[in-house]
Design a protein around this nucleic acid. Structure first.
Length: 275
DNA sequence: AATGAGGTCAACCGCCGTCTA
DNA sequence: CTAGACGGCGGTTGACCTCAT
C-alpha cells in the first residue's frame, strides 16, 4: 500500500521539458528559491508534477551542474565508492562535485556496470583456465589497486560486504565553482549528444533569456548567479575546498584505508562519507 | 539507402524517511 | 502518538541516437 501520488496527474504535461517550461521554472526559482515543490508548478504556471519540477531542476537546470564527460579520475572515484557503498548513487554523487545521482547511475549502468560484469565473468573463466582475453576495467595504473580484490566489482560485489547505512538525508557537499575550462563552460561538451542538437538549441534560447545563467555558464561566478537568483540558502553554498582538492582528499582517505587495513574499519570510513 | 540492434540518458514511478500539525 | 505532506532516493522506462549489416 503505497502513498497516494504526489499529484493528480490529470491534465499534467509529461515527457521532455520544453525551453519555455525551463524558463518558467528557472524564473520561478530565481524569484522564490527552491522548495515547496508541490505547490511550485501551480505558482510557476507549469502543468507539471512537483516532483518532475524538482527532478528537472536538480538534474538539469541547477547552475552548479557539471556537464561533459566523466573524467578518468571521476570514474575511478565512482568505481571505488560503488565498491564501498553499492548503489547509493546520491552518496556517490555527493562526492563528485557537479555530478548528479542520475548521471552517475546512468553512467554506471551504461558503462561501468557492464564492464565489470564482463570482467567478472572473464575472471571466473580465467580461474577455470579459460579465455586469456581479460577485459577488465580500464583502471589507471597510477593508482594503487593492489589491495583491491579483483572480484570486488560487478556481479560479485553483491556478495561482498557492502556498507548499507540506514537511509538518511544527506546534506550536499559544499559545491565548488568549476573553473572555466571544464564542465559546462566547455560549451559543446554537454551531455546532450549531437543528435540532441535541436533540444540543445532550444535550451540555448532559454539561456539567451537568462543572462545571469549564461554568464555563469560561460565562466562567470556561480555565486553571482546563485545570489541573484535568490537561492543562496543551503544547499547552494559555494565554498572551498575546490573540486580538485576534494577529489584528492577522497583518494587520500581511500589510500589511507587501504594502507591502514586493520587500523581503520571500513564502516568508520563509510560513516565518514555520510557526514 | 534501409533497417534492426544496441547504447545513452532524461524523465517517470513507487517507496521510504523526516517533518509537522 | 498518528497521519498526511513533503522531499529524496533508487529502479525502470522509453525516446532518440549511433552503428553495424
Amino acid at each position: 500500500m503505497g502513498r497516494a501520488p504526489c499529484c493528480s496527474k490529470v491534465g499534467l504535461q509529461k515527457g521532455p521539458w520544453t525551453a519555455k517550461e525551463d524558463t518558467l521554472l528557472i524564473n520561478y526559482i530565481r524569484a522564490h528559491g527552491e522548495g515547496h515543490w508541490r505547490s511550485l508548478p501551480k505558482k510557476a504556471g507549469l502543468l507539471r508534477c512537483g516532483k518532475s519540477c524538482r527532478l528537472r531542476w536538480m538534474n538539469y537546470l541547477r547552475p552548479d551542474i557539471k556537464r561533459g564527460n566523466i573524467t578518468p579520475d571521476e570514474e575511478d572515484l565512482i568505481i571505488r565508492l560503488h565498491s564501498l557503498l553499492g548503489n547509493r548513487w546520491s552518496l556517490i554523487a555527493g562526492r563528485l562535485p557537479g555530478r548528479t545521482d542520475n548521471e552517475i547511475k546512468n553512467y554506471w549502468n551504461s558503462h561501468l556496470g557492464k564492464r565489470f560484469k564482463i570482467n567478472t565473468r572473464n575472471d571466473q573463466n580465467n580461474r577455470k583456465g579459460g579465455s586469456e582475453c581479460v577485459r577488465g576495467p580500464k583502471i589507471s595504473t597510477q593508482k594503487n589497486y593492489k589491495n583491491q580484490d579483483s572480484t570486488a566489482y560487478g556481479e560479485t560485489i553483491m556478495t561482498t560486504k557492502v556498507h548499507l547505512p540506514k537511509a538518511m538525508r544527506v546534506s550536499p557537499l559544499p559545491i565548488t565553482r568549476k573553473n572555466s575550462t571544464d564542465g559546462m563552460a566547455s560549451g559543446s561538451s554537454t551531455s546532450l549528444g549531437d543528435g540532441n542538437k535541436g533540444v540543445l538549441d532550444d535550451h540555448e534560447e532559454v539561456l539567451k533569456c537568462l543572462p545571469d545563467l549564461r554568464d555563469y555558464i560561460e565562466g562567470g561566478d556561480s555565486t553571482d548567479f546563485v545570489s541573484s537568483y535568490g537561492v543562496c540558502d543551503p544547499p547552494y553554498q559555494f565554498s572551498e575546498p575546490t573540486k580538485d582538492d576534494m577529489l584528492d582528499k577522497i583518494y587520500e582517505e581511500y589510500q589511507q584505508l587501504l594502507k591502514a587495513e586493520n587500523q581503520l574499519s571500513l564502516d568508520s570510513f563509510v560513516d565518514s562519507l555520510l557526514i
